[in-house]
């Protein structure tokens, strides 16, 4: 599903965010990406989302060599990936339903079909009863769940999450992780960047560990 081959990323020609990263992720896997802040977790995710291009090496996702993806194809590529952000990135002037429907609106899905899928996604995260609420009326944990509903409404093959539990207490964090596991169980490849080592250790999934832009660990223990 994802393959990094000798990937390096420099910013401004000097700062080396990532150096010689090599790993493969099979379809249907669930894994964590850890490391202290500034270790390169976000840079790695940005490369997968094709927000940036590697300075060296190749990034392959779902069969696409991202460096050879034409700029006009990038939006269509991104539609295959669901992304959950730490600060949820909801549109504050629209209700929950519209926020979750956004990826489907962008793809021009028929409104009736879209409504059905939005409700299914909201139901999955347990927020179906709040579909007419505005994001600010929700708690942080609920907002994050809306963000997850938006990420999965399109049934993406790959789900990325960047510090999805960064602002949540341990109980809510565990709930969120359980949601990711549920999606993984139905076949979605899930990659979660997090520095919540205690939580990660309990979940027993593969862990990629970054330190100063290098991959220093790849295994089940953090």
């Amino acid at each position: 599903m994802i393959a990094f081959e000798h990937v390096g990323k420099r910013y401004g020609g000097r700062f080396e965010a990532l150096a010689d990263i090599n790993f493969r992720v099979e379809r249907g896997e669930m894994l964590f990406l850890t490391g202290h802040s500034g270790a390169g977790k976000s840079s790695l995710l940005r490369l997968v989302m094709r927000l940036e291009r590697p300075s060296r090496g190749r990034v392959l996702v779902a069969g696409h060599d991202l460096d050879r993806l034409h700029i006009s194809q990038v939006p269509y590529y991104r539609r295959q990936i669901g992304v959950v952000f730490q600060d949820h990135q909801l549109l504050l002037d629209r209700d929950i339903f519209a926020n979750v429907a956004l990826p489907l609106t962008i793809q021009g899905v028929d409104p009736a079909d879209a409504a059905r899928r939005v409700r299914a996604a909201l139901d999955k995260v347990g927020l179906l009863h709040r579909e007419r609420a505005l994001p600010i009326e929700l708690s942080t944990g609920e907002q994050q769940r809306v963000g997850i509903a938006r990420a999965v409404v399109n049934k993406p093959a790959l789900l990325l999450a960047d510090e999805p539990t960064g602002n949540l207490d341990p109980q809510l964090s565990a709930d969120i992780m359980r949601l990711f596991e549920d999606f993984n169980r139905i076949g979605t490849t899930v990659l979660v960047a997090s520095h919540d080592l205690a939580l990660i250790a309990r979940l027993r999934h593969r862990v990629l560990k970054l330190r100063d832009g290098r991959l220093v660990g790849d295994g089940e223990v953090a």
């Binding site: 779902a62 069969g63 060599d65 050879r68 993806l69 269509y76 295959q80 793809q107 021009g108 028929d110």
Partner: peptide, 24 residues
């Protein structure tokens, strides 16, 4: 793993092109 066209190995998104063609 290295096809250029996104249509090639679209995993579960494979139903997308059809939808785009009919309802685009």
């Amino acid at each position: 793993m290295s096809e250029r066209q996104p249509s090639g190995a679209r995993p579960r998104g494979a139903q997308k092109p059809q939808r785009r063609a009919s309802g685009g």
